[in-house]
Amino acid sequence: MKAAGSRAIGKGAGVGRTDASTGRLRGRAREAFRQCFSFRWVAAAVIVLVWFVYFPVVDNFIISTTRSDIYTGDVSYVGLGNYSRLLHDKVVWSALWNNCAYAVISVIFQVFGAFILAGIIESLRSDFWRRFWRALYFVPSAISLTVTGLLFYFIYQPQIGILDAVMRATGLGALIQPWLGSEHTAIYAIIAMSQWQGFGYSTLLFAVAIQKIPGEIFDAARIDGIGPIRRIISITWPLTREMTGLMILVTITGAFQVFNEVMVMTGGGPNNASQVLGTWVYQQGFIQDDFGYGAAIASVVFVATMLTGAAHLWYTKRGRVSW
């Protein structure tokens, strides 16, 4: 009896465990099905994202390990050969230098310069003048890069350009250079144009960030006798930290994606002196018919901008501002 009872109990317990685990399995399956079913709401967005964003990125890495002939369609696998070639390509290094120069100068002018200018504009008492200066500085940003490039091409013209004319009129004629025609000045002439174009946009964004700071903080500082420069350093700067981080990210990634202005103004010349990574990718793919090598350079640009983005995420996570 005991044994039978034990068996019965055992049997009964076994059945109970099986039922319970089956039930759990069914529950999990239902849950999985429910999750999959709910996934349908975002499926379209995910497919579009995968197809148009992640697929090209992975495909680019795959292409970067090949050498292809666009005319015959022949593709051969070269492994990391294109990356090894990249390390010995002098133009890649000079292009990288140009991108870095672009980034550093842009951060100085379009982040720190724009922050100071926004601080000055927002400290004006007159509402009219605040709006006026914001609008005035924003105008260049409303012009397309191609148009701006053409505009500055004429400004830098040796014979009819306004820059040389002004320099001659102000006694600086001896400093005149073939701005876009010299290997030493071409990239800096382009960077200068870019600052003119992007400065106002950054200023506007900083102005918005400054407006979000509660006025009471500034009022309290004034009552305590803190001057305008100290207010910018001790109140405005730390309380716009998130915007500063965002602007640095946008400016640096933008500097690594530069293309239009270089193509319009110099085409990367003279003698590749103003090539940036973007134009060198284009040059390799569409002029030299070497899409594999172009893809390898594009991968480097991708990694550089990814690292910048990751650094920004770390920075903003660390220093989120709230009040």
């Binding site: 995910v46 995968v50 197809w51 992640y54 697929f55 990125v57 992975v58 495909d59 890495f61 795959i62 292409i63 090949t66 292809s68 015959t72 369609g73 022949d74 593709v75």
Partner: peptide, 20 residues
């Protein structure tokens, strides 16, 4: 999963680039 799917698509797309 997305990475695997993307890699699969990329590899299959690359395969179609064979010489014709």
């Amino acid at each position: 999963l997305m990475g695997m799917a993307v890699s699969g698509m990329a590899i299959s797309a690359s395969a179609t680039r064979a010489s014709s």
